[in-house]
Design a protein around this nucleic acid. Structure first.
Ligand SMILES: [Mn+2]
Ligand SMILES: [Mn+2]
Ligand SMILES: [Mn+2]
Ligand SMILES: [Mn+2]
Lengths: 141, 141
DNA sequence: TGCTTGGTGTAGCCATTGCTTTATTTCCCC
DNA sequence: GGGGAAATAAAGCAATGGCTACACCAAGCA
């Protein structure tokens, strides 16, 4: 089982490869705001756990296992950002909150949140009603 | 700022005092499923940070700061359990998920989730509609 | 062809938070 | 009041995941 930190790295690596075709240590470090030496250490662990194949100074390649997990993680992150946006969380809180909670939700919960989003997508007026509730509660206090 | 672990302890301590009038090391340990020695260590840290006053072998008392924080943490936990229940997460996943995510949500997000719950509470038929969406999606796959 | 240099890797340190082991204190029952 | 079980405390160890300092590699320029 992957730790939260391992998930963050895998997610970032998958995204880099998806967007630029490769993932360098320095890009990973920048994205995660850690030092390059921390990246090297984690890459070695991900190699040991067969998420990727690592050749020092040569770069890395995701294994099938790593690709599959990476995609899942990226999708999960995106879903949670959409969720917080939908219920009205301020833009500047969203990324940090998602970075934290994404590692702690069962796939059952993820599915239920997906359903909830679909619920609002199908009938956008429902979001207006949600905003009305919000205004009511704000008026109360 | 309190770490996730510190929050878990404070939450448990507040709840024990609320329910039984006092919080013993062994009760805290049982609730959090950690060893009593871990509890002692954490209590000493919480004392150092002025969340409580600790006298060894004599017990502990929450400071005003500790009480205020404790109540907030307990309420937050309850809110998140209600949220997951409402959107249809299985009972046996809820506690673990909440234990994980509760430490990683801004108060902005908490407020928005509160609003969402109020939205469903005001018009319970909305939950039925949510369940219909769920059935649709399940039928799809 | 070498030398420079930016990127990468290694080693060793630290903080956090749990554990086990061992010592001490308290409290209840005789 | 004393003995012993339960509770509590302290000390030392381990895993994780950061950091700094320093060493190493290799692509590209002189
Ligand atoms: Mn994350
Ligand atoms: Mn993420
Ligand atoms: Mn928790
Ligand atoms: Mn909790």
């Amino acid at each position: 089982m992957a730790t939260p930190s391992m998930e963050d790295y895998l997610e970032r690596i998958y995204k880099l490869i998806d967007e630029k075709g490769y993932a360098r240590v320095s890009d990973i470090a920048e994205g995660l705001e850690v030092h390059p030496s921390s990246v090297t250490k984690m890459i070695q662990k991900l190699d040991k756990d067969n998420y990727l194949i690592y050749e020092k100074y040569r770069g890395l390649m995701l294994t099938p296992k790593g690709k599959k997990m990476g995609k899942r993680l990226v999708d999960r992150h995106q879903l949670l950002e959409n969720f917080l946006t939908t219920i009205g969380v301020q833009e500047d809180n969203i990324y940090k909150d998602v970075e934290g909670i994404e590692h702690h939700l069962s796939w059952d919960s993820i599915t239920c949140i997906e359903t909830l989003l679909e619920y609002f997508r199908r009938e956008p007026s429902r979001m207006d009603e949600l905003m009305n509730v919000r205004k009511d509660l704000e008026a109360d206090n």
